[in-house]
Design a protein around this nucleic acid. Structure first.
Lengths: 156, 156
DNA sequence: GTGTCTGCAAAGTCTTTGCACCATA
DNA sequence: TATGGTGCAAAGACTTTGCAGACAC
């Protein structure tokens, strides 16, 4: 349709349409939730937040949209080993950079933000090298330490 | 039973009994499988290998034993985000040290062994600091990079 | 002999799929 | 209006739980 005015909003709609997808109410709501948090949320978390604004959106749609966003590279899906996946935008107001200590016994998860400087140095080099060697577009990463926490290592 | 001869084998039986558990045929078989591999296996993988030697052992027992071993700190449970957990002995013939590049689109997993030296340096410091600060007994860790692989980042 | 372990079957949890209806472009 | 998107219900995949019988110590 030549001569059509370009009124593409600077928001997410353009990204969707640019990939051949449509912007819809559920998708907008999900993007709003993801943009407005600094935590990694589970599908259920996102569903409940979306549900407050748009009660008609179903959990299935949340899953489908998250899968779509993951395919598009806009979202990264994490798995912390507790049986439910977490999702986070690759761009935008990222969560505070942190990683996890996971207790194998009591399943407690300790978030820590230490050693970020050392980590950054290592990661910068690793990411640069890996993305070149494997021609891989790295969006995010996860570092987890597994072991026994304070309380559990002294049981027995 | 005083005066009993101490014939405790140097194997896994002692570890189990030392924690108040019993050594059984299924548990021995599972330890054999874990000791004899250099890969991280899923519960189903372990079950199938155990099944060849001891066909009577059930999948439930594999899950229960892995949970027990995890509690004892002898095994670490990983989650790569593909819906099934993997298990690895914390001691013994560890798998070759490697990490993963995970494609968010096609779910392909690339194992890499590069940058291990830089990584080691960072990890040594992080582990030492974290275990001191949080009094956490670190047994293992996982590093994963998420993004789009060669093929997927050029689609669309 | 006693308390732990085990296998089987059933239940649970998170996630995906099928299908008819609805809405965006 | 022609696809693509959605909700609901059902199915799927992996893991956990209940229970009676079996076994290690």
């Amino acid at each position: 349709m030549p001569g059509r005015r370009r009124m593409m909003s600077p928001g997410w709609g353009g990204k969707f349409r640019g990939c051949g997808y449509r912007m819809t109410v559920p998708r907008q709501a999900i993007m709003d939730v993801l943009s407005g948090t600094d935590k990694h949320l589970s599908a259920e978390d996102i569903y409940m937040k979306v549900h407050k604004m748009s009660p008609d959106v179903g959990l299935t749609t949340v899953y489908r949209t998250l899968e779509l966003l993951t395919q598009m590279g806009l979202v990264v899906k994490f798995d912390f080993g507790d049986g439910r996946a977490r999702y986070e935008l690759t761009e935008g107001p990222k969560s505070e950079h942190h990683h996890h200590l996971i207790c194998a016994s009591c399943k407690r998860i300790i978030e820590y933000t230490d050693f970020i400087d050392e980590e950054m140095e290592f990661l910068k080099r690793a990411e640069k090298g890996l993305s070149k060697k494997y021609n891989f577009d790295i969006k995010n990463h996860i570092i987890q330490f597994y072991g026994l926490c304070d309380k559990c290592k002294n049981k027995k």
